[in-house]
Design a protein around this nucleic acid. Structure first.
Lengths: 217, 217, 217, 217
DNA sequence: TATGAATGAGAGTTCATTCAT
DNA sequence: AATGAATGAACTCTCATTCAT
């Protein structure tokens, strides 16, 4: 083993260790942010949750705000998720599954998701950064599919661009909504029923009588 | 004019002045909260925005938090708005108008609405207070209408209770969603188109081919 | 009645009214000070207790501190009380009664007395003002009596000046001590017994076997 | 030196440093409290007197009040001092010395003593905490000694319980009295004379002609 | 003269950040 | 790299005092 390799190795080992530590801090911070909100969370709490000293945070992030930004920018955006799901989105069945997957997405229960919803909602800059400007592409892809569907007849005759925008708005709102409109304690079964119903309405609204029957449990 | 009247008058005049001042403070606070969030807003800023001294805030509200609570509790809840709209909701046309009105509701652009969305979203206690527990009644009323619609044939054969819950979730999410998914600057016309499309999808999803044609502009 | 008389009358009438108001304020303030201490008391509380508006206080006193000073300077100092009791203090029986009266003085239960103890204790300037510099005269009078008593034989042979100082210190300490050393709840009878015992000790300590037997109840 | 020792050492070193800092703060605070009273003292002044930043106070104490409580609870209570002095208190000579020591106790000139007197005097809760409830035991011990003394003849025939209570009241009052009754500036010699005289009076009052002659200087 | 809303300096306290160890 | 005590600016809130009515 050459010196150079040695150096490279230790370098990458250090890099990995740093990455691991950062990850720990971000997880800890996300959980603290999720429960009290960014502003009410203290660096002391974050450090305690990450099991390191307060000052050590600053070896990995340059400020408390930087931690929040890191959480948000490293988290998969729902927009990006939808975007990924539009790859190879061409035929009727895939379209159905696209809508289903979007709405079935688990309620925002992971700490980072709650953090994003709480904080990005209140901060235009963060929100913009989080949504990452991929909305346009998502819209155009979906519009393209809708156009095909209309032409092929498995979608009602709808304006592709406008409908795409409307569908995305409905999906996003539904996905990120904290679902607190419903009775404080909703059974998981009730939740699934409700979501299935929303899927049904949306698909029927888009497809008309070509819409698949909602599956029975 | 008797002394009694005089006293009464000056009393109510004072009351009115107090009410006016409170209103000014709430407006100022809502606008500050809306732009920076509750936690990041300072009493100094609120006072400056209301054009009074910092200490004077406390002649009208007992704490910063109290100001937030006042904003929220004095603001019309969308749940209550929907609930009011369900009065006399029986036939097909009224149902259509109910959905339309809900979705056409102006985007949350007034300061107090942004404040509510930002803060109540992140605070279970506030949210509960704001939503006021009228969800159950709203659901049952809507389920009743849906049942009638299904029986009368102007709605597809849907489960009334589950569908009511799903519709409310969709409406609420759409109503309160900050609409920031769309390009930062969306023309009002584009917005209207998008909302109309959402209405169309929802109504068609619920009613099938009985759905009214979306109006052309 | 001449105009002049008229003017004089209304003038003195106003003066009397002012005096009455000041008295009310002082009483109210003393009671508030007594229960929370000067610093923790607010002008709002004082005004409420005196049943006038906050701002009106300043028509009668120039500051909160001024109210405290007025309370203290208008209150009879225990030093002055003792001093008054030394008038015509010549013979043995009067000396006995002097000691008895000093020690039997009711525990400091009136608001102004508690106020003085609390505040003057903590404030050299106030204390000095309160004690009014009559200590020296009190000492010299008492020393004179003690000298006579020693000469006449109804006092043990004691140094008049030193003994006078010591007796005054003992009396003052005992008079102003909040008596909280004793069990939180002491029956009035127990208190009287204790005070009588202190009188007995002091008198016997000064007079030897000429001391009067403590009265039996 | 093993790692373990090393760790232990640095641990105790830190502990010692913390203790030292706390001590510094308490001294500084006591001196500020002594001169202006607790309520009028500001954390800024305390910090300045302790030569640290204002915020640093809160690394050692959780509030301004906590500093006061620490001062008071770490200070030797005169009650406890007297109590300690009653150990092995049986014969005449020890009794004489007990009284002497109590009254000779240095006037309350240390800052913490002035603080205690000022604040505990005005605050029932603090007072109770400070006096520690050992009064009852002190009384009963003293009553026992007095009973023996009366039986043995070196005390006048006095009721043990009542006399014990009276003596304690006299001692406590004298010990804690700020001695400000006397001329503003009293020479130390004059003070000693006065105290000696008080001792003489008290002892003679209790013992009659068995009382020791006051020592001459 | 009486009022009480308005004021703003200043209180105690918190906490993100720094830095000597 | 890790620590956590030290920092001090900035926070919310209080309250003696003023002054227009």
């Amino acid at each position: 083993m050459t010196d150079d390799q040695n150096h490279q190795d230790s370098f990458s080992r250090r890099e990995r260790r740093v990455g691991r530590r950062q990850e720990e801090i971000l997880q800890a911070a996300a959980s603290v942010f999720a429960s009290k909100g960014y502003a009410a969370a203290t660096t002391r709490e974050i450090a305690a949750a990450a099991d390191i000293a307060e000052g050590s945070l600053y070896n990995y992030f340059s400020s408390k705000r930087d931690i929040l930004v890191a959480i948000i920018s490293r988290s998969p955006s729902p927009v990006d998720r939808l975007l990924a799901d539009t790859e190879h989105l061409t035929d009727r069945d895939q379209f159905v599954r696209f809508i289903e997957q979007a709405l079935m997405a688990p309620a925002p229960e992971q700490p980072w998701m709650r953090t994003i919803i709480k904080e990005a909602w209140a901060d235009d800059e963060l929100f913009r950064q989080y949504q990452a400007g991929h909305i346009e592409e998502l819209t155009s892809r979906l519009a393209h599919v809708i156009g095909s569907g209309v032409k092929a007849g498995w979608l009602r005759p709808l304006d592709p661009n406008v409908t795409a925008a409307a569908v995305i708005a409905l999906l996003m709102a539904f996905m990120m909504h904290p679902m607190r409109v419903c009775p404080a304690v909703e059974t998981p079964e009730a939740r699934i029923q409700r979501v299935r119903s929303a899927i049904d309405i949306l698909l029927y609204g888009l497809m008309g009588n070509q819409s698949p029957e909602p599956e029975k449990e």
